[in-house]
Design a protein around this nucleic acid. Sequence first.
DNA 1: CATGCTTCGTTTTGTCATACATTATGACAA
DNA 2: TTGTCATAATGTATGACAAAACGAAGCATG
Lengths: 246, 246
Amino acid sequence: MFQTSSALHRNVHSQVTDRVGSSIVRGEIGVGEALPPEMQICQMMDVSRTVVREAMRTLTGKGLIESRPKSGTRVRPPEQWNQLDPDVLRWHLETADIDRYLAKLFQLRTAVEPGAAALAAIHAGEEDIARIRAGCDGMDAATTNEAFVAADIAFHQSIYFATRNEFFWPIAQMFEITLRQSFTIAAPGSHRPRALIEHRAVLDAIAAGDAEAAREATVVLLTHSADDLVRIRGREFEMPRSTPRR
Amino acid sequence: MFQTSSALHRNVHSQVTDRVGSSIVRGEIGVGEALPPEMQICQMMDVSRTVVREAMRTLTGKGLIESRPKSGTRVRPPEQWNQLDPDVLRWHLETADIDRYLAKLFQLRTAVEPGAAALAAIHAGEEDIARIRAGCDGMDAATTNEAFVAADIAFHQSIYFATRNEFFWPIAQMFEITLRQSFTIAAPGSHRPRALIEHRAVLDAIAAGDAEAAREATVVLLTHSADDLVRIRGREFEMPRSTPRR
DNA sequence: CATGCTTCGTTTTGTCATACATTATGACAA
DNA sequence: TTGTCATAATGTATGACAAAACGAAGCATG
């Protein structure tokens, strides 16, 4: 329990937060179960109670736990966790196998991104479009694989920000976390030229303010991307596809 | 600054979290600006530093602020806030006018829910379908307006949970927060019969495991819902619509 | 003389230790 | 069965010190 994680933080309470949070996400504590009392955690990790309590506050804020005097601190059901919180995501990534995670992320993208692109076409300002275009150009100019993936991610992030709807932003944030853990989110290499064309199509539709075109271009982009993922990483990346009209 | 909020909590640090968090979301502090030093906040609110620090940890965990020795505690850019966090949502709801908020929420639903329903059709288990059906039945049996809306919300929440993809769950959570603040999320009354039929259509498609039917039934449902909202509350509820095929 | 670098002091957050308040649980007794 | 109370856990307060980073003063150098 509370196995030391690999991340090195400057703050002690971040480390404690990491170890406890990771344990919870890993499922070592079990929903509804109680954590050890604060004092016991202090001894286990050899830190002061201040630190443990601040870690607990952080976890409470993320919806992972719930504390009451006397009864102790209990793990809340996962439906109530802030599953899109960067830390929670990271803890998931440490434990769950990466393919399952990427498949779920891709499911979310498939559901959201076409609609987001449509909204972006309506609400994007000059700066938003410039950012999206910068992503395209970055993909174009990329020599290394890392640079290509980074530009790719920046492109998609910019679309979410361009909706001008803050509820889409946390989804954009997810990409960063994922990026740091693996460079394999996209499946570049063989299909770069086609991918570039399809990205430009999305950009052009958004720049033109054509919501429906942006939606459908994004569907095409994601569909082909899913095909690549299925080919490279396996069938769990198959998505329910809404056949785009032509 | 740090105006007292209306919510009554049992914990002192929750109150401090509320006041500071609310101030930040309200925009009283300004992105990049520094908060007053901890000791000063202690005096302002007449609490111990322990409490203030635990409140700060909570806010840090939600991505609102960032602390460094000597330089102080600064407000992070809103793109990095956990915008789907229940508390952040609540603070937004306190300040922003409710129509803008509901419109953005509806934009998100319009983008996500069709895809979520498609996924639910594939992954839902018996319990999931039972929950969705319970939502339908609840709408059917509802006598009061509150009961109808509550059942409606339960129905839609169940769809997100039925995806079996935890990244969709935070969106379901949003409905709870919104429900507590206003019963007007749906626009019931005149169109109850039609709404009920459309909800059943979604349920049937999911129960039948037909992803495409579930998607299109949801699009129809949301489109009509948006029409009602536009009629009742105004044009800001107009959505980019993906004309469903027939 | 002006400019850049180093050093050091000060401010603010980070951590520790201790004491006490508050509250809900669970056992005991009426 | 119900009410009361001891108890164990979290909640709050206080005071002290550590660490880090910004800024100013001083030093060396052009």
